[in-house]
Amino acid sequence: MSIWEYANPVKFMRLSGAILPWVVVGAVLCTVGGVVWGFLTPLDYKQGATVKIVFLHVPAAMMAINIWVMMLVTSLIWLIRRHHVSALAAKAAAPVGAVMTLIALATGAIWGQPMWGSWWEWDPRLTSFLILFLFYVGYIALWSAIEDPDSAADLTGVLCLVGSVFALLSRYAVLFWNQGLHQGASLSVAPGERMSAVYRYPLYLSMLGFLLLFLALLLIRTRTEIRRRRLAALQAREIRG
């Protein structure tokens, strides 16, 4: 029995229906737990209460990138092995990824306002995330623009492939560009470094929570897409029949 068995929509529906409640419970527990625990952490001597934002900012940023990678993998699986569930999973993941990118950008802006004195800095990291958000928007727009589902899956898959290369390229181009503008000025707050256990454990929990939350949303949204596809097939048969 191989993993490809679950590429069958019926098997996928059965399996995802069975594990979905557990994932939802885990996602709610870990996300709420991590975020509330993070909210209750003591003040940082340098950043004051703003350090609490890290428990939203970092998990959201992590998921924003990971969801794109997941979309790349599922797009490749669709393009190579033609498993419909894979293409639908990529479609289902994109809006979640866009929201995660938006959360990372919004919390970053709100955090940056008191720390850097401005809502927005053309810092390499921030700029890359803005570009990533543009890629998400383009990908979602392309999905909704094409009527034929298989063509849509193919074209968005190719776009995801090319987009991944250019998102990565932009990441390094932006690094070059910013250093060209103001040398040596690094505003990014390196997460994970010099972070005490008080902040680290709630952060881990929050990251796990966001991961499970994404998984739950991914399962729900993929199930929605499969149902819509089946509905369309039934309606087509009725019209023909």
């Binding site: 975020v35 909210f39 209460a49 934002i53 959360i103 955090w111 306002q113």
Partner: peptide, 18 residues
């Protein structure tokens, strides 16, 4: 502390989006 508004805004926006 003095960043109450900032922190609450960040949590508010994130919770709304999620």
């Amino acid at each position: 502390g003095k960043y109450a508004g900032t922190v609450l805004a960040a949590y508010g926006v994130s919770v709304l989006l999620l």
